[in-house]
Amino acid sequence: MTAMSAMITIAWVALVRLVRGRALWIALVMALLPIGYALVVRDGGRPDLPADLFAVEQLLLVVVPPMLLAAAIGDELEDRTTAYLWSRPVPRWSVLAGKLVALAPIAIVLVLASWIVAGLVGSGSAPPLGTVAALAAGGLVIAIVAMGLATLVPKHGIALTVTYFLFLDLPIGALPASLRYLSVTHHVRTLAGTKTAALAQLDPQGPAVLALALIACGWSAIALWRIRRIEA
């Protein structure tokens, strides 16, 4: 079996488990929340509605991908079902890659659908493509961060990821210092173009993509290093 087919098989298992479990439905309900909000406030005439909605979607981004990724990896490591995987001729990275390939797109699609539908409901027009791309990129990177944290602390993967973004990533992203370049949510806002013109000039979009890629690479490296060392 090639590493690729092992990855596909693991992705298939992750998908089946997701569909037959409860996580998908819980994530779906979460994704519906901003749409409900848009329905409630669409007649309020608030000019900041898209910005408010985007802020809410960012919070959704902090919860949904970790719920799927960190739970899938944490369950595997905590339930010791990795014993089945590690005893098979599959490279360990394919386990992480399989889960990422299966679950990250679903988490991203849920958040994007929520954002687009909420935008249509709230302001009557589809949100700008840049914001969609920014949320997609952010979703992928947050999923990778969740994966890394789940390999480090399987039992508290979700809690740690939410804590990381809430208590570290969001605050440093708001700092007027170069530390903000380590913040995923900061780069998501940059890519989405939701900043003021002055701030947008400070943080151009090109380097933001590069920074997100570097953060993703860093956390992928942590996850791969850790998964190679984990013993079942």
Binding site: A83, Y84, S87, R88
Partner: peptide, 25 residues
């Protein structure tokens, strides 16, 4: 190899589980 613990991928049917394990092997 069969581990000592009972946990497996409970959402799968027995046939699916064994098929996946055979595929991975």
């Amino acid at each position: 190899y069969t581990p000592e613990h009972e946990k497996a991928w409970d959402e799968l049917t027995a046939l699916e589980l064994v098929t996946v394990m055979a595929r991975l092997a």
